[in-house]
Design a protein around this nucleic acid. Sequence first.
DNA 1: CCTTGACCTGGAGTGCGCTCCAGCTATTAG
DNA 2: CTAATAGCTGGAGCGCACTCCAGGTCAAGG
Lengths: 128, 128
Amino acid sequence: MTIKTKAKETWLTPAQMSERSGVSIDTLRYYEKEGLLQNVSRAASGHRRYSSEDILWVEVLRCLRNTGMSIDQLRHYCALGAQGTGTEPERLALLNAHRQKVLQDIEKMQKALELIDHKISFYGSKTE
Amino acid sequence: MTIKTKAKETWLTPAQMSERSGVSIDTLRYYEKEGLLQNVSRAASGHRRYSSEDILWVEVLRCLRNTGMSIDQLRHYCALGAQGTGTEPERLALLNAHRQKVLQDIEKMQKALELIDHKISFYGSKTE
DNA sequence: CCTTGACCTGGAGTGCGCTCCAGCTATTAG
DNA sequence: CTAATAGCTGGAGCGCACTCCAGGTCAAGG
């Protein structure tokens, strides 16, 4: 159970959050709908107010998304987080598995890069 | 103009080509339709027969696709190749631009990896 | 009071890169 | 000859990750 410190936080409006995180407002709402972003606060008006915690978490989400984790996997990971204590081993396992995948992806990219470089060097000489 | 050596080549059927290249038959046809795979030979029956050149080229296509080049960009690159001599500088430029993008992507992945590792190390200690 | 603009919701639409399908032809095994 | 297998075509369909839209609410400025 994460205890939110009641200290004055600077809440961000959707527009500010979007600007700050580089994620569109629509996508933020989409993430929330999919359960990737939980317990987003609301102003009396019903408008969202994002906390600094949310900012950090969206950063993590983007990091995982950018490295190829699917929304579905992310949803699973977040669901574990929501269940709280006891799920840490599984969460850790998921992260480790993802880490391996990213390492492999990087390797593949580097292999591909070699081929591209090779192809480029062909153009250096006259014949294709 | 690429002059095909008339020497006995071992032509591959679509099924063989698919097996060999790891690209599905449907995708091979799709690539051809999109102009990424040109002048594929045909048997008298009308069935495709892929040459060893085709094998090599599909490998290049996959390499570029795997590193994030879009079908659209690939189409452009292939169109240049089809136009023949004179387009080499532009082709080279495209490859170089792509190379830069791949380098940046690798860097981003490595940055992301750091965050993931950091997150993983958190689970090593007890608090999330 | 009226307008403006940011935000709300549920749901429809989009773009990409395939993937599948119907209906047909050709080749091969028995 | 027949049946099974592989391939052909044009076009429809799919999954993912958003992205957009209609129709409505709310708060502030003039």
